[in-house]
């Protein structure tokens, strides 16, 4: 190991990101999930800042600030408000029990690492080895999304997926061009607000946020 310290910190943060992704997978309460999501955003922003600083890529500062503002402050706040307003914070039993989910999660991590290995070896950036972790976080968030039956955990899963992608972008390529990043951030923001409206509609119509009610449309 002859990496400089800040890159070791990035690696450490990558590990933390993955750890949080696993914690999310095993988290039963919505409020806990939101808190974890905020922490994930923090780790993401921190790693982005370190990459920005160590490689003098100034546009990464903007995306770090964007992450911090959106994913650590605005969105968690909005979700907490939603949870309070909709009064939906109860223990949620996921559709597959948690140990099984975790086992699938491990399998996904191995898969992601394998997939990323040949690419990571090619990457010119110094933070390349984190690509596998980013991919793993994406897959874990995806797993969380499909194993939860409530609306808000699904959306948090979606956003956690976005976090993983963002991390992939910073770690493998030092971030996408700023225009694209801004566009992505805008889309995410709009998505969250559209969903906020949407939650109220779901709540009004079904009187619950449990998506198990939403299983009428299927092939007979």
């Amino acid at each position: 190991m002859s990496l400089t310290y800040h890159l070791q910190v990035v690696n450490l943060l990558a590990a933390v990101l993955l750890l949080i992704a696993f914690a999310m997978l095993s988290q039963r309460r919505i409020v806990g999930l939101i808190t974890l999501f905020a922490w994930q955003g923090t780790a993401l922003a921190a790693s982005t800042i370190i990459v920005a600083w160590s490689t003098a890529q100034h546009h990464l500062y903007y995306s770090a600030a964007l992450t911090l503002a959106l994913k650590v402050v605005v969105m968690p706040w909005y979700f907490f408000r939603l949870v309070r307003k909709l009064d939906v914070d109860r223990d949620v039993e996921p559709m597959i029990n948690i140990p099984t989910t975790m086992l699938i999660g491990i399998a996904l991590v191995i898969f992601a690492f394998n997939l990323a290995l040949p690419i990571a070896q090619m990457a010119g950036t110094v933070t390349r080895s984190t690509l596998g972790i980013a991919l793993a976080s994406v897959l874990l968030a995806f797993l969380m999304m499909i194993t939860r039956s409530k609306a808000i955990p699904q959306v948090i899963g979606f956003l956690a997926m976005e976090n993983g992608l963002f991390f992939a972008a910073t770690s493998a390529t030092y971030g996408m061009p700023l225009v694209v990043e801004l566009g992505v951030a805008l889309d995410v923001l709009v998505a969250v607000f559209v969903l906020g409206i949407f939650f109220f509609h779901i709540r009004e119509t079904f009187d619950s946020m449990d998506l198990k009610h939403m299983e009428r449309l299927r092939e007979k």
Partner: peptide, 21 residues
Amino acid sequence: EFLGTAFLLAVLGMLVHFLLE
């Protein structure tokens, strides 16, 4: 479940070691 999680985390640590270190 708690201890299973501990085991998985330890395995994960090992995987991360191979990827990052």
